[in-house]
Amino acid sequence: MAKEFKPVVVTANDLIEGDSVFLSAQGWVRDIARAHVAYDADAAQALEADGLAGETANIVIGPYLVEVLLATGHPVPVLRREQIRADGVPTIPVGLDAQPVERAAA
């Protein structure tokens, strides 16, 4: 039995800035909510080709398809890795935003 098709978006990293970008109707954008969603295999194939064209044109690096859920009305990645990537930041406060150090009890 063929695997059930899940909707996908195409993502990559911006060549100059390095951050995660998603292909939308307006080109490559930072916000996955604006990403163009492919709902069937043919559309996914076309989307992947558009992503590769972005790499060939030296705009992005390493395009690939990401499976998404649409329960909220916007695409949200299925996998944790892709969720973290789409968020654009670690899951923990870092650097200056890290929690003040808790003094250990003696």
Binding site: N13, E17, G18, D19, S20, I61, G62, R81, I84, R85, G88, V89, P90
Partner: peptide, 8 residues
């Protein structure tokens, strides 16, 4: 110089 999840 690597390319990581969120950035270089």
């Amino acid at each position: 110089l690597y390319l990581q999840l969120h950035a270089y």
